[in-house]
Design a protein around this nucleic acid. Sequence first.
DNA 1: ACTTTGCGTATTTTCGAAAATATGTCTCAT
DNA 2: ATGAGACATATTTTCGAAAATACGCAAAGT
Lengths: 233, 233
Amino acid sequence: MTTTALKARKEFGKTLASDIAHRLRNEIVTCQLKPNESLKFDALRLSFGASFTTLREALTLLVAEGLVVAEEQRGYKVAPVTLEDLHDLTHARILIEVDLMRRSIEKGDDDWEIRVISSLHRLVRIEERAPEDYASNTEWKAAHRQFHEALVSASGSPTLLAVRNSLFDRAERYRNLSAIFRPHPRDKAGEHRALMQAAIGRNADQACALIASHIQTTSNNVARYASGVISAG
Amino acid sequence: MTTTALKARKEFGKTLASDIAHRLRNEIVTCQLKPNESLKFDALRLSFGASFTTLREALTLLVAEGLVVAEEQRGYKVAPVTLEDLHDLTHARILIEVDLMRRSIEKGDDDWEIRVISSLHRLVRIEERAPEDYASNTEWKAAHRQFHEALVSASGSPTLLAVRNSLFDRAERYRNLSAIFRPHPRDKAGEHRALMQAAIGRNADQACALIASHIQTTSNNVARYASGVISAG
DNA sequence: ACTTTGCGTATTTTCGAAAATATGTCTCAT
DNA sequence: ATGAGACATATTTTCGAAAATACGCAAAGT
């Protein structure tokens, strides 16, 4: 073979388009594809080995999630990062996550408690295993995501959960961005444990206050450490 | 020409795909395309005159908005309507709309006040002109949408506004569904005026209570009158 | 009778070429 | 020098055919 063109093969989703969306989402969230980077079809075609229309479908999906922006007739690019966007995102996340948390605590059954406890356990184990900069560890990120997902998983609100997931991705991109510059990872272990205890203890007010403050603090840290790479809001 | 196939032409959007998404959205919201109806490509191709891939892109857009559901490898269909979904939707709308309302009232400037007042004025004029069942009037629906959009337009929250718009469409589909069975349209004129007055008067608590109750009441009415066509939650 | 297997049809999914649109460059008139 | 117009190139957008996959029905096996 003379070219490096890949033949596309599914790793995740059931259709190729959703599979590519998944991979693209990952590259954007981890900032392998940088904010504002223009997503030319020829280039994407080369790295993903799919045709124009399949790529287009994947990009459409990511536009809906706010990770890609489309300028009609002028192509797609990775969504910009700005302080304004970070603030907007943070506000939306707190509003929705607090609501989901409260209702999850109201409705959560035994299985929910188990999901919360076990996902926290896994997170702690990973932190013990790699105490240094676990925040840039892929395994930690997955566990972190799963813990937060478990907390709200009993809310019984598909609509808000879907929005929440997409906002979580957008926020994770900002966290990854700031991780490049942050001297040391903040110790979130205590916060996570307190969150779990408030949730399992059915102390809704406290859990909501904790999650709001958790999101806000993280956002503030991102704003501080990532200000170098973030365009002026 | 032997077939009735249409040649696609843009009426709205800049690209054909977004244009078709717009038209499809309208047909779904107005229930010309019925809940659960399967969206076969051949049929769509005939009525919209676009190719497979263009239609696919439009459908992808609507899936993200929750008006269409995709069963991978088994095509697309109009999203089902259920009582459960209506409740979920209503809850999400109240949460988000109340937040947007409060911040719009905080931040709204002169232009915002003008938008609110003039959009209400237009709505009232239409109601005067067609006092009978204005709720099934296209013009009224557009004005109604614009009034509610105006109220929250100063919130400065692109993320939540985008979610709000998509939820509004989903809710409008339920309203249209119940309008078929509702004996007489509820008189919303008073509620709308009170909403405007509370907003312009910068009475945030009252405006938030009014909008929450407005959404909840509408949803309750939909549930009552549409129970015949809504699948059991 | 009831499930399983295989095959033809219907439908979706993916592809690469062709059309449409934007961008950049060069020329020419002022 | 500067700006407008025209051509050439780069890029996106749309198309219909081809490949992949699901579905229905008939035949065979238990």
